[in-house]
Design a binder for these strands. Structure first.
Lengths: 134, 134
DNA sequence: AAGATGTAATTCACATGTTAACTACAAGCG
DNA sequence: CGCTTGTAGTTAACATGTGAATTACATCTT
């Protein structure tokens, strides 16, 4: 599957950066979503980060132990909890941001900025056409 | 990452079929590669199926136990082994082929055949431009 | 209020992804 | 020949993907 291979070659560029800071790709995704969107409940976070609930449970646990995120129970509903990125987490994201941008720009340079954008549009379109199924 | 989500929505269509026959997506990929290409050594098979060696070792073991594939050591080199799909494996692939085709055609119908082909070309191009790095 | 139903999150079991270390064998080199 | 280097495959350790079952809590219904 071309989608699989494409994702592999892209992520290969980011892995050294993530390994240097001892976080996984998924942990990074979770932190980025929280940094960009603000505090979220677990279900919403799982959707936005494309991570399944069982995985998210484990990731949250790991990130909480390292104090990159915090959790606060929602009153009025004992099930839910609001997850928020901590200052430490924000600092990590900000530290990685320049490198992340540089990597993306390098990819765009090789592949072509216009192609890159067109590819993203097509992928979004594909996701739309398929995810709208009953 | 759009690539991740796109892959998810596509594979979601195939999972019920695979679950019915009690094989995983990766096992299916391995069998298809062997069916299409003929007997291969493990390294080559791993590359073609986009599966890492440790995963392939486990998958081969599982497929061997169910007698979907066979392995024969290469004489002159005690390390290598030729992996080949068995008649049982071929039968499984052939049984699934029509359904697989139908699913792809349904996707093309929703997304557009021309779009689909263009997307594949762009993905291949991206893979080329990135995988050629030193 | 008690029971049925629904929902958020977790836990379980197993398969795979990922990196590093390791084994077994081959090929080159002094 | 014995040693080094290289290569194919495996094993180990840990994180995530995946589907099913479970827990805890809410809400609905009567």
């Amino acid at each position: 599957m071309a989608l699989l291979r494409a994702r592999e070659v892209i992520m290969a560029h980011f892995r050294p950066m993530l390994a240097r800071h001892d976080i996984t790709e998924q942990q990074w995704r979770v932190l980025r979503v929280l940094a960009e969107t603000g505090p979220l409940e677990a279900t919403e976070l799982a959707n936005r980060a494309s991570i399944l609930p069982p995985s998210l449970t484990r990731i949250i646990k790991a990130l909480e132990e390292r104090e990159f995120i915090s959790r606060n129970k929602v009153k009025d509903d004992g099930r839910r909890a609001l997850l928020a990125i901590s200052p430490t987490g924000v600092a990590l994201i900000e530290e990685l941001a320049p490198e992340r941008t540089a990597i993306y720009e390098a990819i765009e340079k090789r592949y072509g900025a216009a192609e890159h954008e067109r590819l993203l549009d097509m992928l979004e379109s594909l996701i739309q056409s398929e995810s709208a199924e009953s």
